[in-house]
Design a protein around this nucleic acid. Structure first.
Lengths: 202, 202
DNA sequence: CTTGTAGCGCTACGACTGTAAGGCAACGGG
DNA sequence: CCCGTTGCCTTACAGTCGTAGCGCTACAAG
């Protein structure tokens, strides 16, 4: 007997893909808890769902395929959230600031996932496109601030890299030292927006 | 049979501690290769040295004690190197810049160790003192720049945090995405020194 | 030459892992 | 009602790991 939690019934005919979604969801939870893709075991995912370990292979070729599919979903969720937060703001500075702040809130809710997405070695191979899209959108947001005269004219991609680097540093430190008495994330972001991008905040 | 490399002779009487040092050195190499303390196995350390796995227990109570002892040594090495690089410079700006640049070079030589020291969970418990010392020294270096009139007067600890955060971000991104075509580290550091600390570089 | 002991190795246990091979039961179309 | 297919489980293998217990051997002191 392998199951430690309650066993799970079968799906109806044609609903086999439902288990696939549940597996991805459980993997997402576990990856967030563990903060390390190497520490995730296929059997732990199965235990979480009350299914047999080998049943995962019905939907995923191997352990890596499962993790990659799960990360793809996490990437999609994050980019969508960040883009939505940006669109909810009107002025260019508000848009840029909203992007960064939502990223911070997302990481606060999913610190383990951020670790997996940025510090894991498996991930390095596949998530370049995801990071590139996020970077390009941030650079565009910086450019719009400059075009609107809200930030001094400069090489937008270089300034964007400065900002993303600093923000990543702030997030990484908070994720990896959660017990340290950090200042509010917003305050630190505003310092970076002022000093690195050169915007004037209200 | 457990050994894969050549077996190792015994030490002379009274030289038993020599193995202890070799174990730490091998653990250091392996941690740097792996970049993750959870991935390090006591047996791999033993294989590396050509000794029996259980012989590690003569000098270390368990696996965690071995990793912690190794990290303590890494911390010591790094702080010493950074302090030496600072002392080799004369002017306050040169000292601050030397600290940051040597940190960058050290991480370039030991990317895996940096990951273990900053991203591992085991480490989180014990290395606060080490990080605090590094942070305090950096803040002192920033303060000296302000005192010498080489940087605008401001809250040195806040400015120091800005700088350390941004530098950590730059290092973290390089360590975790080694194949990306990053700009030279020095150029990025100089941008941060200029925009975050406000020094004027020659 | 004897003998204590420092310095290690050998074996084993129980637990964990990824994954291959095959089995069984329930459901829906005919 | 029959039967193929879907959906999942059981069993098994080969590997990894940490670590407890005990055994051996070479050297130095007497």
């Amino acid at each position: 007997m392998e199951t430690t939690s309650a066993p799970r019934g079968r799906n109806r005919r044609g609903q086999g893909a439902r288990l696939k979604e549940d597996i991805v969801a459980a993997t997402l939870r576990l990856l967030d808890e563990l903060g390390d893709d190497q520490a995730l075991s296929l059997r732990a995912v199965a235990r979480e769902l009350g299914i047999a370990a080998t049943s995962v292979y019905i939907h995923f070729a191997d352990r890596d395929a499962l993790v990659l599919a799960t990360l793809e979903r996490a990437h999609h969720d994050l980019t969508r959230s960040v883009n939505e937060a940006e669109e909810a703001q009107a002025d260019p500075v508000g848009k840029l600031r909203a992007r960064v702040l939502l990223l911070g809130r997302w990481v606060q809710d999913h610190p383990g996932l951020y670790k997996v997405m940025h510090e894991s070695t498996l991930n390095q191979r596949e998530s370049m496109a995801f990071k590139q899209e996020l970077a390009d959108r941030a650079t565009a947001a910086v450019q719009r601030c400059m075009d609107a005269g809200l930030a001094p004219r400069d090489d937008a991609s270089a300034v964007s890299l400065d900002l993303r680097t600093a923000v990543h540093g702030a997030i990484s430190m908070r994720v990896n030292q959660p017990d340290y008495p950090w200042l509010p994330f917003e305050a630190q972001v505003d310092r970076f927006l002022t000093k690195l991008v050169g915007v004037t905040l209200p």
